[in-house]
Nucleic acid binder design. Structure first.
Lengths: 267, 267
DNA sequence: TACATGTGTCTTTTGTAAGAGACAATCCAG
DNA sequence: CTGGATTGTCTCTTACAAAAGACACATGTA
């Protein structure tokens, strides 16, 4: 099968750090792996492949999948031997949105921004130590700047990553950033110290701009959204062509910061 | 908090029909109950209360909740001893939407309808044998007609329910509809035979109208969305004041049917 | 035809996770 | 202050779920 997706998701995104050979696993963990695997692949998967994918015995996966399908967390896809996420997960997801002011308002704001500016706009958060595009709105440019909701990419590749890590201990940051994360898509390699310095300046400035990191043709403008406690809880950002003028960039950053500040106001 | 919502969710919505006194339960089942319980309550719950709510030993719930929080399926709420749905469930939910044309287009269509007509509009589906409001858009009327996304109410109370069950065997329908489901919020009681007759006529007519079932002041207009296989996969409906004129009702139904037909076209 | 590869459902075995319970630490009402 | 209720963490036991593996039935393909 083609998983020829160059960057995409880290394969080892599992919830625990087990490098176990494969002794007996708790059923719940198997389920967590299944969900993560489906998320990584973004399509319905055959049960056999699923077993292979999460490196678990077939018989186990059959029983677990049956439970999950019965519960509505997964659904059988078309032909009937592949499964993907189910309606119930959608409902739970909507519950999360409803219970989360920041996310709800943030999505709104991102949609507004991309409509007003015509540029791709995104809402980003830390998700268990990983940078995550929580919501994105495509903008109106002819070439589509890649970015799918839910995509997780290395923190050092992004402007938002620099803001999200502001205020963390150095040790914590080192923990979140793997060696691989410091290697950019084009092969260049960041120095951890430079990255940590970037974080400090971004945090102090209250915004961040990165140019040509993820790809050579875009730059990314980001502004932090603060929680009531004063932590960076999220960022909103704009992805613009790298040759955007100084002046326009300045204007966009000002706009971004204003909107981010508005989001920071907690009822 | 006001949970003075009279109807709301059935408490026993669990995935299995266990009438067990309390033998040993599979961990995964406990988790499913936890999620269902949070969904039913729509707010963060203390771990102790959670254990009580799903009728499980405290120690078990503590370990499970820890796993779920680590995995990001749940998140600790503000003070730190209550939990609610987590970001990961939101991401999985968005994955579901992305993989599901009907849902994606249906949401869009419902939003359009409520904007165009000013009435509350909803997208409804069967979710493991239960009627579910998958998406709703509030409309512009001063009084808000209650309806939250994800709400599950008895099939016989709704126009959509009559359409969704078209084409099912009688036995299957009897299975899905409990005695309690036949009792309306105001205490009136439907006859199962009448309900099954309603289903047949609704299926044949290609639309359905119910008046004053859920409450005395509204009627519900619904039209079916068909899958490629020709089954009723969803419905879209409008909730309007019960005194809406014959003529306007006819127009709205025509509109609804046209949009539903458009949704039925599978790429 | 034989031979490999994948799928879905069994049964059997055994490692371990669910559960009971004890514990200290809070918290709050009277 | 005192007594009861709640919270979070631990330990130990055994009931039972995860895993192994055998089976029957499709496929494909050489």
């Amino acid at each position: 099968m083609q998983d020829g997706n160059a960057l995409a998701v880290r394969p080892d995104a599992g919830p625990d750090e087990d490098r176990n050979s494969g002794s007996r696993e708790k059923g719940l963990n198997r389920v967590l792996h299944i969900l993560e695997f489906l998320h990584a692949n973004q399509r319905a998967i055959g049960i056999g492949d699923l077993a292979k994918g999460v490196n678990a015995p077939r018989s186990t996966i059959y029983t677990l999948v049956r439970s999950l399908v019965d519960a509505g967390l997964l659904e059988m896809a078309g032909d009937g031997n592949r499964v993907y996420f189910g309606k119930k997960l959608y409902l739970y997801g909507m519950d999360y949105v409803r219970g989360n002011d920041l996310l709800r308002r943030g999505r709104q704001e991102v949609d507004n921004l991309s409509r007003e500016t015509g540029e791709t706009s995104e809402l980003c958060m830390l998700q268990s130590g990983r940078y995550t595009i929580v919501h994105s709105s495509p903008g109106t440019r002819p070439f589509r700047i890649s970015s799918a909701t839910g995509l997780q990419i290395p923190l050092p590749w992004t402007a938002s990553g620099r803001l999200l890590l502001a205020g963390f201990e150095r040790a914590v940051i080192e923990d979140m950033v793997s060696e691989d994360d410091l290697v950019l898509p084009d092969g260049r390699r960041l120095l951890l110290d430079d990255f940590i310095a970037d974080i400090a300046t971004a945090g102090a400035a209250g915004y961040c701009v990165t140019s040509g990191l993820v790809d050579a043709y875009t730059k990314c403008l980001a502004a932090p959204v603060f929680s009531a406690a004063g932590n960076v809880e999220a960022t909103i950002c704009l992805v613009v062509p790298i040759d955007t003028s100084e002046e326009k960039t300045r204007d966009l950053i000002a706009l971004l910061r204003e909107r981010a500040a508005r989001l920071s106001i907690t009822g």
